[in-house]
């Protein structure tokens, strides 16, 4: 589903990703771990199409299509979803309005008809309930004054509503309490499906107890330096990155 080959990415002329290879098949869940500043968020932004993240070499194929040729909103309509490490505040735009606009934009781009306000309300409410997102939050301006954990839950709510094909979760577990972590993990697991792929970026093995990945990759200095099964996370937790990154260097 996702095939990244020899990816080099520069931001403001500085190379951040330096020859990254990664391939995820449909139905698989992969995890990326790695030290601060290793390029994890950079990878997530490149996949979502953020301006200023220039691919200087290499390729990204998404379902066989050149992802770089698509505008970010086209990627979203084709099922790419990024739950951001730092969700953005948009003053004056209620969460419900935002969700409705986004959902119908994606549908329109796919040639589907709009869902009316009542329909969206029903859909959002049903999903919000399972994620413990309150009615009151939906009425507030998007992410404005939300706590760190509330912002993350809202990201997962969006994932549940949009039902993406490729979901990238950038440190969605950071800042969540134990109960919220379990809720988020349940949300992710509920979407696990033979037709979907997920890329989970995390610093903590704890999340991987709930979302058991098919494969773990270790990213350091812009490259994948180690790969393995779920036992790799335990090893990292025990020995730290220095050990593995040092070995690879």
């Amino acid at each position: 589903m996702l095939e990244i080959k020899n990816l080099h990415v520069a931001v403001d002329g500085k190379e951040i990703l330096k020859g990254l290879n990664l391939s995820i098949g449909a139905g698989e869940v992969h995890a990326i771990m790695g030290p601060n500043g290793s390029g994890k968020s950079t990878l997530s932004y490149v996949l979502a199409g953020r301006a200023g993240y220039d691919i200087t070499q290499g390729s990204i194929a998404y379902n066989g299509e050149d992802l770089a040729a698509l505008a970010p909103e086209e990627r979203a309509a084709k099922g790419v979803f990024l739950a951001m490490q730092y969700p953005v505040e948009i003053p004056g735009v209620t969460t419900m309005t935002f969700l409705k606009t986004a959902l119908n934009s994606q549908r329109r781009a796919r040639g589907e008809s709009d869902i009316d306000a009542v329909g969206v309300l029903k859909l959002v409410r049903a999903k919000a309930k399972t994620l413990n997102v309150s009615e009151e939050m939906l009425k507030r301006a998007l992410n404005v004054g939300f706590s760190g954990g509330e912002k993350k839950r809202l990201e997962i709510l969006q994932m549940a509503i949009f039902e993406p094909k490729l979901a990238i979760l950038d440190e969605t577990d950071s800042g969540l309490d134990i109960d919220a972590l379990r809720l988020v993990a349940e949300g992710v697991n509920a979407l696990r499906d033979p037709s979907r792929a997920m890329l989970v970026i995390t610093h903590y093995q704890r999340l991987l107890d709930y979302i058991v990945p098919d494969r773990i990759h270790v990213l350091a200095k812009g490259r994948i330096v180690a790969e393995g099964g779920k036992e790799l996370a335990l090893e990292l937790e025990a020995k730290g990155y220095e050990h593995i990154v040092g070995q690879a260097a």
């Binding site: 979502a48 953020r50 970010p72 909103e73 309509a77 953005v88 948009i90 606009t101 934009s105």
Partner: peptide, 11 residues
């Protein structure tokens, strides 16, 4: 803000 909207499919 703009990127957040775009990434959610809003042109």
């Amino acid at each position: 803000q703009l990127f957040y909207c775009l990434a959610r499919g809003i042109p």
